[in-house]
Design a protein around this nucleic acid. Structure first.
Lengths: 110, 110
DNA sequence: TCAAATAACTACAATGTAGTATTAATTAGT
DNA sequence: ACTAATTAATACTACATTGTAGTTATTTGA
């Protein structure tokens, strides 16, 4: 069966992916999540999520050029597929319409 | 360890709770999620999530008055606790800042 | 060959979901 | 009025998916 909605962390990772553009590899994504969402995810969590989303066809990846600057495995860059972007938009939309207007409510009622 | 962030469905349920106000019981929450987010969750999913959030102290509940209109068990009404509201706000905030501006991007960049 | 950067793998915990069972009330038949 | 049928709703159980940490492996420059 086709899973329809993304988990919260998946949404975060996908958003970070979009934000990072061409520089979307593990560490960059991690930093983006840290600085934007204030959430300190481990790299492991990110790679695992990315791998699963790749299996589902939501993202693709390719290895970057061999040599970076100073040691290290080549980076693997990720991008959303069309399906990934669609799924992302759909999830975000339903979250948005659910959330819409709610932060304007301090402690009314009761 | 204190779990910090809510799952996506938890966020949806909490938002529905806020929207329903005094009428926040199983079926109403379900409908709210359906009509707002367009997502057809089962009641089971909702109760389970609610029960877990209650264990974590994010919501409380109390049974409603015995007689409704036509048969049936008394409704159980749910509300967010202060902690629940805080957790909700925090999760929504980090989602918002992550998502901010992203839907404005149609298919720029390559 | 050592240290650094990064990716891949493994295992486990938490969350998401469906499906079934139970309970409490109302209605209706006798 | 008693009891069975019906209905609205909650509670429970089991399983699938997602979230996370931790460990290991690979690549490369010094």
């Amino acid at each position: 069966m086709r899973r329809t909605s993304l988990g919260e962390f998946e949404i975060l990772v996908l958003a970070a992916l979009l934000r990072c553009g061409d520089e979307a590899y593990g560490a960059a994504i991690r930093e983006e999540i840290k600085s934007r969402a204030g959430r300190d995810a481990t790299v492991g969590a990110i790679y695992t999520t990315l791998a699963r989303m790749q299996e589902k066809g939501l993202v693709t990846s390719k290895l970057g050029p061999a040599s970076a600057e100073r040691g290290g495995r080549p980076k693997r860059f990720f991008r959303l597929t069309a399906r990934g972007r669609k799924a992302f938009d759909a999830s975000v939309d339903s979250l948005r319409s659910m959330l819409d207007g709610l932060d304007a409510v301090p402690e009314s009622r009761s």
